[in-house]
Design a protein around this nucleic acid. Structure first.
Lengths: 109, 109
DNA sequence: CGCCTTCATAACCAATTTGTTCTGAAACCA
DNA sequence: TGGTTTCAGAACAAATTGGTTATGAAGGCG
């Protein structure tokens, strides 16, 4: 994988990895904890964690024999910024009033 | 690919496909026009277009012998919404003042 | 009609992805 | 020290991806 953005999107393309990220919003977790919800072996989860780490979406620390994963959401902001460049194209109508209403709606969110 | 979100992120993971989407912001284009910037065969580009179409990111129409691709940005909004759920996690500090400032800053953008 | 242009599809190939099982390293615990 | 827990890495297999070349279908044009 050459660029950061491709790595992030590729990491997000897998539902298991998205679920792992969602879990990590509640705080750090061990590999076993992260593996628990999935019908998949521990090494498979370790591989997913490696993908997430290489995309910069998690960092990892040790505590005793456990390896803790931590969410690192910064690259998600980059991805979101990229998507933001298309904001003008995902509204059907393009007349002035509609743009204004959308603009106001944006401010509210 | 099971779900829509995975398909969209997978489609975005390729720089060629992101470049195609960017080009389509300037309006519809033929396969030949889309292929022109890339050092790659026409069938390769056709395959990329198929991936984009299946992710719902383009629609296609005919005009004479040409097949025109049109940007359909709606799924990008869905992807951006998903990323938005992590907004609270991509700022380092989490104290109240910082949150308030970020909140205000958000409204400005 | 016959030709040309535009493009999709088929067949193929190499590399990558996503899972598996087996093994062993690292760090704590009795 | 020796055992246990936690996890990563190696080796393997199957499916997918991203490219190729060859072919032919669809639709104007002389």
């Amino acid at each position: 994988m050459v660029d950061q953005l491709s790595a992030v999107f590729a990491a997000l393309a897998d539902p298991t990895r998205r679920a792992i990220l969602a879990r990590l919003r509640d705080g750090e977790a061990t590999v076993a904890e992260l593996a628990e919800p999935f019908a998949m072996s521990q090494p498979a989860v370790s591989k997913h964690l490696k993908v997430l780490e290489q995309a910069g979406l998690i960092t990892r620390t040790r505590r005793a024999t456990a390896r803790l994963s931590h969410l690192r959401a910064e690259p998600l902001r980059t991805a979101r910024d990229w998507l933001g460049d298309y904001r003008a194209y995902w509204q059907e109508s393009h007349d002035r009033l509609d743009d204004l209403l959308t603009e106001l709606q944006e401010k509210d969110t």
